[in-house]
């Protein structure tokens, strides 16, 4: 194989890599709503010590059955978990955005049930 043909083949592979790159960007898009079952594990490991294993409260406020009314817009709750507020620490460096979405989804749906 001549050098020119080799370079042509590499260019074709690079084009394929670029197409794969674009496809993967969209194929791995995280769910917009979060995954409550994954969120339960995140909650147990990061939130239960303050908010209680059943979300009934402790050093942190009660969440179960209440958090959806306090934060009608889920984005507001995601912001509090992400950035922290008052005595609530920021989880921005400890949890991924997807994990925060999962745990927020869990507190709004399955927590305490």
């Amino acid at each position: 194989m001549s050098f020119k043909r080799f370079v042509n083949a590499i260019e074709v592979l690079a084009l394929a890599a670029a197409i794969t790159f674009a496809i993967l960007l969209f194929a791995n898009e995280p769910s917009e709503s979060g995954n409550a079952s994954t969120g339960a594990k995140v909650y147990a490991a990061n939130c239960a010590s303050c908010h209680g294993a059943d979300g009934g409260g402790g050093t942190g406020p009660k969440l179960a059955g209440r958090v959806g009314r306090v934060y009608p817009d889920i984005e507001d709750q995601v912001a509090v978990v992400t950035k922290g507020r008052d005595g609530m620490p920021s989880f921005e460096g400890d949890l991924t955005a997807a994990q925060i979405l999962d745990v927020v989804e869990y507190t709004r749906t399955d927590l305490g049930k």
Binding site: F3, V7, I10, E11, L13, A14, A17, F21, L25, N28
Partner: peptide, 24 residues
Amino acid sequence: GDAHRLIGTLVFVITLPVAYQCLW
């Protein structure tokens, strides 16, 4: 000229995994 093309292509390919993590 072909070496120039090859290296340019390699530069592009090397950036892809970096850009993917940045974007995604």
